[in-house]
Protein backbone atom coordinates (compact mmCIF):
# COMPACT_ATOMS: atom_id res chain seq x y z
CA UNK A 1 0.00 0.00 0.00
CA UNK A 2 2.71 2.40 1.01
CA UNK A 3 4.51 1.97 -2.24
CA UNK A 4 1.44 3.14 -4.12
CA UNK A 5 1.17 6.32 -2.08
CA UNK A 6 0.92 9.22 -4.49
CA UNK A 7 3.71 11.75 -4.74
CA UNK A 8 1.52 14.53 -3.33
CA UNK A 9 0.73 12.43 -0.29
CA UNK A 10 4.35 11.67 0.24
CA UNK A 11 5.20 15.31 0.10
CA UNK A 12 2.47 16.10 2.59
CA UNK A 13 3.77 13.47 4.95
CA UNK A 14 7.25 14.89 4.66
CA UNK A 15 6.00 18.37 5.46
CA UNK A 16 4.18 17.12 8.53
CA UNK A 17 7.30 15.37 9.71
CA UNK A 18 9.33 18.50 9.15
CA UNK A 19 6.86 20.58 11.15
CA UNK A 20 6.93 18.11 14.00
CA UNK A 21 10.70 18.06 14.07
CA UNK A 22 10.77 21.86 14.02
CA UNK A 23 8.52 21.98 17.05
CA UNK A 24 10.75 19.47 18.78
CA UNK A 25 13.71 21.73 18.34
CA UNK A 26 12.29 24.23 20.78
CA UNK A 27 11.20 21.61 23.21
CA UNK A 28 14.53 19.94 23.57
CA UNK A 29 15.38 19.11 27.15
CA UNK A 30 18.69 20.81 26.97
CA UNK A 31 17.35 24.32 26.36
CA UNK A 32 16.40 26.91 28.96
CA UNK A 33 13.91 29.70 28.22
CA UNK A 34 16.15 32.44 29.57
CA UNK A 35 18.97 31.20 27.41
CA UNK A 36 16.78 31.18 24.34
CA UNK A 37 15.72 34.77 24.95
CA UNK A 38 19.26 36.00 25.51
CA UNK A 39 20.52 34.23 22.40
CA UNK A 40 17.79 35.61 20.19
CA UNK A 41 18.43 39.14 21.37
CA UNK A 42 22.18 38.80 20.84
CA UNK A 43 21.74 37.31 17.38
CA UNK A 44 19.38 40.04 16.24
CA UNK A 45 21.70 42.82 17.42
CA UNK A 46 24.75 41.22 15.83
CA UNK A 47 22.77 40.52 12.66
CA UNK A 48 21.63 44.13 12.33
CA UNK A 49 25.21 45.28 12.71
CA UNK A 50 26.26 42.88 9.98
CA UNK A 51 23.74 44.04 7.40
CA UNK A 52 24.69 47.68 7.98
CA UNK A 53 26.94 48.05 4.89
CA UNK A 54 24.49 46.30 2.61
CA UNK A 55 21.74 48.49 4.00
CA UNK A 56 23.93 51.56 3.51
CA UNK A 57 24.51 50.68 -0.17
CA UNK A 58 20.81 50.29 -0.80
CA UNK A 59 19.91 53.50 1.06
CA UNK A 60 22.58 55.49 -0.76
CA UNK A 61 21.40 54.31 -4.16
CA UNK A 62 18.04 55.98 -3.43
CA UNK A 63 19.47 59.30 -2.23
CA UNK A 64 18.99 62.47 -4.29
CA UNK A 65 22.14 64.40 -5.20
CA UNK A 66 22.00 66.93 -2.35
CA UNK A 67 21.75 64.17 0.24
CA UNK A 68 24.62 62.27 -1.38
CA UNK A 69 26.93 65.21 -0.75
CA UNK A 70 26.15 65.49 2.97
CA UNK A 71 29.09 64.71 5.19
CA UNK A 72 29.27 62.55 7.22
CA UNK A 73 27.07 60.29 5.06
CA UNK A 74 23.68 59.61 6.58
CA UNK A 75 22.33 56.15 7.27
CA UNK A 76 18.86 57.19 6.19
CA UNK A 77 17.29 58.97 3.25
CA UNK A 78 14.86 61.87 3.59
CA UNK A 79 13.38 62.08 0.10
CA UNK A 80 14.10 58.80 -1.70
CA UNK A 81 14.38 58.87 -5.47
CA UNK A 82 15.08 56.34 -8.20
CA UNK A 83 16.97 58.96 -10.23
CA UNK A 84 20.25 57.07 -9.87
CA UNK A 85 18.68 54.00 -11.42
CA UNK A 86 17.04 56.01 -14.18
CA UNK A 87 20.31 57.55 -15.33
CA UNK A 88 21.96 54.15 -15.65
CA UNK A 89 20.69 53.40 -19.19
CA UNK A 90 22.19 56.65 -20.51
CA UNK A 91 25.57 55.71 -19.04
CA UNK A 92 25.52 52.49 -21.02
CA UNK A 93 26.49 54.46 -24.14
CA UNK A 94 29.97 54.78 -22.68
CA UNK A 95 30.43 51.03 -22.90
CA UNK A 96 32.46 49.60 -25.75
CA UNK A 97 30.17 46.64 -26.38
CA UNK A 98 26.45 46.22 -25.53
CA UNK A 99 25.64 45.49 -21.89
CA UNK A 100 24.03 42.21 -22.88
CA UNK A 101 27.43 40.95 -24.01
CA UNK A 102 29.00 41.62 -20.59
CA UNK A 103 25.99 40.06 -18.92
CA UNK A 104 26.21 36.98 -21.12
CA UNK A 105 29.92 36.59 -20.33
CA UNK A 106 29.32 36.87 -16.61
CA UNK A 107 26.40 34.46 -16.56
CA UNK A 108 28.11 31.97 -18.87
CA UNK A 109 31.38 31.99 -16.93
CA UNK A 110 29.70 31.82 -13.50
CA UNK A 111 27.24 29.06 -14.32
CA UNK A 112 29.50 26.78 -16.36
CA UNK A 113 32.48 27.14 -14.05
CA UNK A 114 30.43 26.68 -10.89
CA UNK A 115 28.96 23.48 -12.29
CA UNK A 116 32.32 21.95 -13.14
CA UNK A 117 33.91 23.35 -10.01
CA UNK A 118 31.43 21.47 -7.81
CA UNK A 119 31.38 18.30 -9.93
CA UNK A 120 35.14 17.95 -10.38
CA UNK A 121 35.88 18.87 -6.77
CA UNK A 122 33.27 16.51 -5.33
CA UNK A 123 34.41 13.58 -7.47
CA UNK A 124 37.99 14.11 -6.33
CA UNK A 125 36.87 14.50 -2.72
CA UNK A 126 34.93 11.24 -2.94
CA UNK A 127 37.99 9.37 -4.18
CA UNK A 128 40.17 10.93 -1.47
CA UNK A 129 37.67 10.25 1.31
CA UNK A 130 36.20 6.89 0.44
CA UNK A 131 38.61 4.79 -1.58
CA UNK A 132 42.00 3.23 -0.98
CA UNK A 133 43.90 4.33 -4.05
CA UNK A 134 47.62 4.79 -3.77
CA UNK A 135 48.91 8.26 -3.07
CA UNK A 136 45.67 9.71 -1.73
CA UNK A 137 47.23 10.82 1.56
CA UNK A 138 49.97 12.64 -0.30
CA UNK A 139 47.52 14.31 -2.68
CA UNK A 140 45.31 15.42 0.18
CA UNK A 141 48.28 16.78 2.11
CA UNK A 142 49.31 18.78 -0.97
CA UNK A 143 45.76 20.09 -1.39
CA UNK A 144 45.75 21.32 2.21
CA UNK A 145 49.19 22.84 1.94
CA UNK A 146 48.33 24.68 -1.26
CA UNK A 147 45.68 26.58 0.70
CA UNK A 148 48.40 28.05 2.87
CA UNK A 149 50.59 29.39 0.08
CA UNK A 150 50.25 33.08 -0.65
CA UNK A 151 48.19 33.47 -3.81
CA UNK A 152 49.74 36.75 -4.89
CA UNK A 153 53.20 35.31 -5.55
CA UNK A 154 51.64 32.66 -7.81
CA UNK A 155 50.40 35.20 -10.31
CA UNK A 156 53.49 35.38 -12.51
CA UNK A 157 54.06 31.60 -12.78
CA UNK A 158 50.34 31.23 -13.48
CA UNK A 159 50.44 33.83 -16.20
CA UNK A 160 53.31 31.96 -17.87
CA UNK A 161 51.30 28.74 -17.76
CA UNK A 162 48.21 30.43 -19.21
CA UNK A 163 50.18 31.83 -22.09
CA UNK A 164 51.97 28.51 -22.61
CA UNK A 165 48.59 26.83 -22.95
CA UNK A 166 47.27 29.55 -25.27
CA UNK A 167 44.57 30.53 -22.78
CA UNK A 168 45.27 34.25 -22.80
CA UNK A 169 42.33 36.29 -24.08
CA UNK A 170 39.92 33.34 -24.24
CA UNK A 171 37.09 32.17 -21.98
CA UNK A 172 39.43 29.42 -20.81
CA UNK A 173 41.38 31.96 -18.81
CA UNK A 174 38.31 32.47 -16.62
CA UNK A 175 37.08 28.91 -16.52
CA UNK A 176 39.97 26.43 -16.28
CA UNK A 177 41.92 27.95 -13.36
CA UNK A 178 38.73 28.31 -11.31
CA UNK A 179 37.65 24.68 -11.66
CA UNK A 180 40.19 23.00 -9.38
CA UNK A 181 39.69 24.48 -5.94
CA UNK A 182 41.67 23.18 -2.99
CA UNK A 183 39.10 24.70 -0.69
CA UNK A 184 36.24 22.88 -2.43
CA UNK A 185 37.96 19.49 -2.37
CA UNK A 186 38.91 19.98 1.24
CA UNK A 187 35.36 20.94 2.24
CA UNK A 188 33.74 18.07 0.34
CA UNK A 189 36.26 15.54 1.61
CA UNK A 190 35.65 16.47 5.24
CA UNK A 191 31.91 16.17 4.76
CA UNK A 192 32.08 12.87 2.92
CA UNK A 193 34.33 11.42 5.58
CA UNK A 194 31.95 12.18 8.41
CA UNK A 195 28.59 11.87 6.65
CA UNK A 196 28.82 9.05 4.15
CA UNK A 197 28.92 5.76 6.10
CA UNK A 198 31.19 3.10 4.62
CA UNK A 199 28.41 0.55 5.11
CA UNK A 200 26.25 2.52 2.69
CA UNK A 201 28.95 2.40 0.02
CA UNK A 202 29.48 -1.31 0.57
CA UNK A 203 25.74 -1.88 0.20
CA UNK A 204 25.68 0.05 -3.06
CA UNK A 205 28.61 -1.99 -4.37
CA UNK A 206 26.89 -5.25 -3.48
CA UNK A 207 23.87 -4.00 -5.40
CA UNK A 208 26.18 -3.69 -8.39
CA UNK A 209 26.61 0.09 -8.52
CA UNK A 210 29.90 1.26 -10.04
CA UNK A 211 32.13 3.83 -8.34
CA UNK A 212 30.76 6.79 -10.23
CA UNK A 213 27.17 5.79 -9.60
CA UNK A 214 27.91 5.26 -5.91
CA UNK A 215 29.44 8.71 -5.79
CA UNK A 216 26.58 10.37 -7.65
CA UNK A 217 23.60 8.56 -6.18
CA UNK A 218 24.76 7.65 -2.68
CA UNK A 219 27.52 9.99 -1.54
CA UNK A 220 26.31 13.29 -3.05
CA UNK A 221 22.75 13.19 -1.63
CA UNK A 222 24.24 12.57 1.81
CA UNK A 223 26.35 15.72 1.68
CA UNK A 224 23.80 17.99 0.06
CA UNK A 225 24.42 20.90 2.47
CA UNK A 226 28.10 20.78 1.59
CA UNK A 227 27.81 20.98 -2.17
CA UNK A 228 25.06 23.56 -1.98
CA UNK A 229 27.36 25.71 0.13
CA UNK A 230 30.23 25.10 -2.26
CA UNK A 231 27.97 26.16 -5.14
CA UNK A 232 27.32 29.43 -3.34
CA UNK A 233 31.02 30.09 -2.62
CA UNK A 234 31.94 29.36 -6.20
CA UNK A 235 29.17 31.45 -7.71
CA UNK A 236 29.90 34.37 -5.43
CA UNK A 237 33.57 34.40 -6.41
CA UNK A 238 32.92 33.92 -10.11
CA UNK A 239 30.22 36.53 -10.30
CA UNK A 240 32.67 39.16 -9.13
CA UNK A 241 35.49 37.91 -11.38
CA UNK A 242 37.29 40.69 -13.23
CA UNK A 243 39.52 40.21 -16.23
CA UNK A 244 43.00 40.61 -14.79
CA UNK A 245 45.94 40.71 -17.16
CA UNK A 246 44.59 37.71 -19.02
CA UNK A 247 41.68 39.13 -21.03
CA UNK A 248 42.09 42.02 -23.47
CA UNK A 249 39.18 41.77 -25.90
CA UNK A 250 36.33 43.98 -24.84
CA UNK A 251 33.74 41.40 -25.89
CA UNK A 252 35.15 38.86 -23.43
CA UNK A 253 35.02 41.12 -20.37
CA UNK A 254 32.55 40.62 -17.54
CA UNK A 255 29.82 42.63 -15.83
CA UNK A 256 31.95 43.74 -12.85
CA UNK A 257 34.26 45.38 -15.36
CA UNK A 258 31.33 47.15 -17.03
CA UNK A 259 30.04 48.11 -13.59
CA UNK A 260 33.34 49.68 -12.61
CA UNK A 261 33.40 51.61 -15.91
CA UNK A 262 29.97 53.04 -15.17
CA UNK A 263 30.81 53.78 -11.56
CA UNK A 264 34.14 55.56 -12.03
CA UNK A 265 32.96 59.03 -12.76
CA UNK A 266 33.45 61.03 -9.60
CA UNK A 267 31.31 62.15 -6.74
CA UNK A 268 28.30 63.21 -8.81
CA UNK A 269 27.88 59.62 -9.97
CA UNK A 270 28.12 58.24 -6.45
CA UNK A 271 24.44 57.39 -6.52
CA UNK A 272 24.82 55.58 -9.84
CA UNK A 273 27.80 53.65 -8.49
CA UNK A 274 25.71 52.51 -5.56
CA UNK A 275 22.81 51.62 -7.85
CA UNK A 276 25.17 49.46 -9.92
CA UNK A 277 26.54 47.86 -6.75
CA UNK A 278 23.01 47.08 -5.58
CA UNK A 279 22.06 45.53 -8.92
CA UNK A 280 25.24 43.46 -8.96
CA UNK A 281 24.46 42.16 -5.49
CA UNK A 282 21.15 40.64 -6.54
CA UNK A 283 22.30 37.41 -8.27
CA UNK A 284 24.58 36.24 -5.42
CA UNK A 285 21.81 37.03 -2.95
CA UNK A 286 19.34 34.96 -4.98
CA UNK A 287 21.79 32.06 -5.18
CA UNK A 288 22.37 32.43 -1.47
CA UNK A 289 18.67 32.28 -0.65
CA UNK A 290 18.00 29.31 -2.93
CA UNK A 291 20.95 27.22 -1.75
CA UNK A 292 20.82 28.07 1.96
CA UNK A 293 17.09 27.60 2.09
CA UNK A 294 17.58 24.00 1.03
CA UNK A 295 20.65 23.62 3.23
CA UNK A 296 18.64 24.51 6.29
CA UNK A 297 15.79 22.28 5.21
CA UNK A 298 17.88 19.16 4.79
CA UNK A 299 17.17 17.02 7.73
CA UNK A 300 20.13 14.89 8.59
CA UNK A 301 19.60 11.36 7.48
CA UNK A 302 22.51 9.01 7.47
CA UNK A 303 20.61 6.62 5.24
CA UNK A 304 20.93 3.91 7.85
CA UNK A 305 18.26 3.42 10.40
Amino acid sequence: MQATMSKADQRKLQKLKLKASRRDQYKRFTRSKGGNFFYTLFLILFGLFSVLPMYYCIITSFKPLDELLVFPPRFYVISPTVASYLTLPSLLDNLAVPLSRYAFNSIFVSVVTTFFHVLVGSAAAYVLAKTNIKGKTVIFAVVQMSLLYNAYTLEIPRYLIYSGLGMIDTYWAYILPMIPSSMGVFLMKQFMESNVPDALIEAAKIDGAGSFRTFWQIAMPNVKPAWLTLTLFSFRDLWSIQPGGTIFSEELKTLPFAASTIAQSGIARQGCAMAVTVIMMIPPILVYLVTQRSVTQTMSSSGIK
Partner: peptide
Protein backbone atom coordinates in the same frame (compact mmCIF):
# COMPACT_ATOMS: atom_id res chain seq x y z
CA UNK B 1 37.60 4.47 -12.37
CA UNK B 2 38.79 6.09 -9.14
CA UNK B 3 41.84 7.53 -10.85
CA UNK B 4 39.63 8.74 -13.71
CA UNK B 5 37.36 10.49 -11.21
CA UNK B 6 40.32 12.14 -9.55
CA UNK B 7 42.15 13.08 -12.74
CA UNK B 8 40.20 16.19 -13.91
CA UNK B 9 40.82 17.83 -10.57
CA UNK B 10 44.34 16.56 -10.26
CA UNK B 11 45.49 17.66 -13.72
CA UNK B 12 44.04 21.16 -13.39
CA UNK B 13 45.21 21.46 -9.79
CA UNK B 14 48.70 20.43 -10.80
CA UNK B 15 48.82 22.85 -13.72
CA UNK B 16 47.37 25.91 -11.99
CA UNK B 17 48.45 25.48 -8.37
CA UNK B 18 51.19 22.90 -7.80
Amino acid sequence: VHYLMLSPFFILFFAFTV
